[in-house]
Each structure stands twice: as structure tokens, then as C-alpha cells.
Simulated scan of single mutants.
Amino acid sequence: MLGKPCLLSEKTYAIIMTESQSMEGWSIIEEREVINSKKNRIREAAIKVLSLKGLEKTKVSDVVKEAGVAQGTFYLYYESKNALVPDIAEKMLLHMLKEMKGRISEEEPFRNQLKNIIEITFEITYLYRDVLGLCYSGMATTGFFQEWEQIYIPYYEWLEERIEKAQRRKDIRQDMQPSMIAKILVELMEGIAEQAYLFEGKKDKVVDYQKDLMNFSITALKCE
């Protein structure tokens, strides 16, 4: 029977309906959490397996065994093992962006913001050093270069906004496009951090690399 039960008061009926709607909302949230949990398990398992075996030798069966899920579950989220690569790269980048948003105030002078951005870039590069090589080799062999650019869009936009504000405050030079400055800075910072941790393995030189990078950047941008 549709409609309001005749034995309930207006107030009681309103409470029941509110709680019912709340429960429906929670069921949706819980379902999403289960989905995210399974996908995260697969992704974390993939990072572990890929780090040990590499992309070529890793099989989907290896990943699902490590994740503790059925092979069919894997294909609900990824069309192939190659599709893991941009997803892992996105997780790494979102982690870095979250750190930057949480630790860097836009009210600070841009010089201070830049110093913190450099430090966080090095921190995240070190944290994901075992995975970064896989991401790059995976991008090269699977052709996910377009996805790679898409992954970076939120980071570029965030940094570009900071640069625009710095230009309005005349903290830095105003004769360059913020979008170009953002891309140059990102490539420069990540390139040097990767050189330190991935290729040269000179952790003892990290402080010197950061100082040189900072000095070069503030000179190029004419930071006040």
C-alpha cells in the first residue's frame, strides 16, 4: 500500500523516512567503498608483483593471486595488465598533489612555495622509486602516452593557478605564460629527482640537487 501509514504521527513518519533515505545513502557509499577496496587491492598487488617481475613477465593470474580476488574481478576494472600502468601512475601523482595542497599555502611568497614543491617532488619520487621505472617502461611499451598527459592535467592546473597569482603579486616575472612555466618546472623537478634516485642512486647528493634546482628556478623566474 502506498502513502503514509495512518497509525503514525507526522513527526514519526518524517523520522522514519529520513532514516530510510539515510540508510539508502549509506548502502550506496558502502558499495562504492567495496568497489574501491577491491580495486585498491588489485593495484597494490600489481605494484608488488610488477616490482618483482617487471611488466613483461607479470601475468594477470600473478596479480589476482597476490590481491586475493578472482580473475574475473580483475577484468571489471582493467581490460589488461597494461591498463594497470596509467592507474599506478595516477595514484602516485594524486598522492603528490594531495601533499602539495595540504602543505603549501597559496598566501606564502612563491619562493617559499617553490621550495616546498621541490621538496615534496623529491619525497614522492623516493617513495615510488621502485614503481616509477615500471611506469615509464610500461608507457613506452603499451603506448599510454596520451593517458599520461591526461593524468598530469590536475597537477599542471594547480601549479598554473599558483603561478598566475604569483605573477599578479609580481613575485615572479610576468613575461611568460603560466602554463608553460608550470610544465617546465614539473619536468625539471621530476627529471632531477629521478636522476638522483632512479639513475644515479646518489641519495647523499639530494640536498645539493635541491639547492641547485631552487637557485636555478628562482633565477629563471626572477623571484622576489
Results as ranks from 00 to 15, higher is better:
Gln113Ala: 11
Leu93Gln: 11
Lys170Asp: 10
Thr219Ile: 05
Ser61Ala: 14
Thr142Pro: 06
Ser137Asp: 05
Gly133Met: 03
Met139Gln: 05
Gly191Trp: 09
Pro5Arg: 09
Leu7Ser: 10
Thr125Cys: 14
Tyr13Val: 10
Lys101Ala: 01
Met100Ser: 06
Gln195Trp: 00
Gln195Pro: 00
Tyr77Arg: 02
Met180Ala: 04
Ala45His: 09
Asn116Lys: 15
Glu224Ile: 01
Glu106His: 12
Leu93Cys: 06
Tyr13Asn: 08
Glu123Tyr: 11
Met92Asp: 09
Glu187Gly: 11
Lys115Met: 08
Arg162His: 03
Asp208Ile: 15
Leu84Arg: 01
Met189Trp: 06
Arg103Thr: 12
Gly133Tyr: 01
Ala166Gly: 02
Val207Arg: 07
Lys59Ala: 14
Ser22Val: 12
Lys38Arg: 10
Val85Phe: 08
Ile218His: 11
Phe122Met: 14
Arg129Thr: 12
Ala193Gln: 08
Ser27Glu: 12
Ser61Gln: 13
Lys203Glu: 10
Asp62Gly: 07
Glu33Gly: 00
Thr125Tyr: 03
Val63Arg: 01
Asp62Ala: 07
Val69His: 04
Ile15Asp: 06
Thr18His: 07
Glu224Leu: 03
Glu19Pro: 06
Glu24Arg: 04
Glu66Arg: 15
Ile15Gln: 08
Glu79Trp: 07
Ile88Met: 06
Leu52Thr: 14
Glu24Thr: 08
Lys170Trp: 14
Arg169Lys: 14
Ile29Gln: 01
Ile181Pro: 03
Asp175Arg: 14
Leu55Ser: 12
Glu33Ala: 04
Gln113Pro: 09
Arg32Leu: 07
Ala89Cys: 09
Thr18Asn: 07
Val186Glu: 05
Lys91Val: 15
Thr18Asp: 09
Leu2Cys: 00
Val60Gly: 13
Ile120Met: 01
Glu194Ala: 14
Met176Ser: 13
Glu200Val: 05
Val49Arg: 01
Thr141Ser: 10
Thr18Met: 05
Glu10Val: 03
Ser217Asn: 10
Leu134Ser: 06
Ser20His: 15
Glu224Arg: 12
Lys165Cys: 01
Met189Leu: 10
Leu93Val: 06
Pro5His: 09
Gly201Val: 06
Glu44Ser: 14
Val186Met: 11
Glu44Arg: 09
Phe216Ser: 02
Asp62Lys: 08
Ser179Phe: 13
Leu97Asp: 02
Asp87Ser: 15
Pro154Glu: 02
Glu164Ser: 13
Ala166Asp: 02
Gly68Thr: 11
Ser20Ile: 13
Leu84Met: 02
Tyr75His: 10
Gly72Ile: 09
Ile184Pro: 00
Ser51Phe: 12
Glu200Gly: 07
Lys183Gly: 11
Tyr209Gly: 00
Trp158Asp: 00
Thr121Arg: 06
Ser61Lys: 14
Gly3Ala: 09
Gln174Ile: 05
Lys81Gln: 04
Met100Lys: 10
Asp175Ser: 07
Met1Ala: 08
Ser51Thr: 15
Ile42Leu: 03
Gly138Asp: 01
Phe145Ser: 02
Asp171His: 11
Lys98Phe: 02
Ile163Phe: 04
Lys91Met: 13
Gly3Met: 09
Thr121Ala: 07
Leu127Tyr: 03
Leu159Ser: 11
Lys98Thr: 08
